[in-house]
Amino acid sequence: MKSGEVKKSKELIIDVRNINKIFPGPIPALVDFSARVHRGEVLVVIGPSGSGKSTFLRCLNGLEEIDSGTIIVDSIPLDDDEKHRLEIRREVGMVFQSFNLFPHMNVADNIGLAQRLVRKKNRKDALATTMDLLHKVGMVEKAQSFPAELSGGQQQRVAIARALAMNPRVMLFDEATSALDPEMIGEVLEVMMNLAREGMTMVVVTHEMGFAREVSDRIIFMEHGSIIEQGETDHFFLSPEKERTRRFLEQIL
């Protein structure tokens, strides 16, 4: 958060070097892509659809395989070792565009599941954490509800709580508000904003420029799988250097 309430360290949480990713088809998803995120930093990735923003995010916790390059998260290399992949996923929380809550479990179980199975917490401790998180996202009274009984905004807030339950070092948000009705976007953005204020390290893919500007320390603008321009948020929005960036910002602002 740029207001600087939380002191940023120089500790690298995400170190991505020269990764390439090719999907079947003519357009490569990521081309020689590098990025770094420090502890406590909020990085927002913007760009036209199909530019590779989501792919970049999904590579970070191994949901997509990279074809070349290196990814290091919290000093753990993401390589062929399945153990490393699991370790990284434990430290990286992810929030999806389509929420992906588990429909056969109630809200509390959605949030408690990984705490018990992965963090090996007992039922009581897990429940305590779950209720704390539900409080944080304003969903305490829905603890026993099933996902189908919730609005999109409520589901997404539960999904954020579910990811936070693993006590991750970094949170990834993949267009977390894109599938929401307009009146529900605010409640989700607010939760994300609070997280950033608390000093959570975040990588956010979003189309909400107002939010991006408010919450981020740094912006990456990408197209066709590579970075067109990146910089500190204020500088990026006030005086973008590349012509392509200016055109993109004009279109959406």
Binding site: F96, F102, A114
Partner: peptide, 27 residues
């Protein structure tokens, strides 16, 4: 079962076995 269910389970660090047992097979 939708791919998002796998991805959500994987991104929480669940093993394949746990993912099948608690997420995929019950549904």
């Amino acid at each position: 079962i939708k791919r998002g269910q796998w991805e959500a389970a994987h991104s929480l660090g669940l093993s394949s076995f746990d993912t099948y047992r608690t997420i995929i097979l019950p549904q």
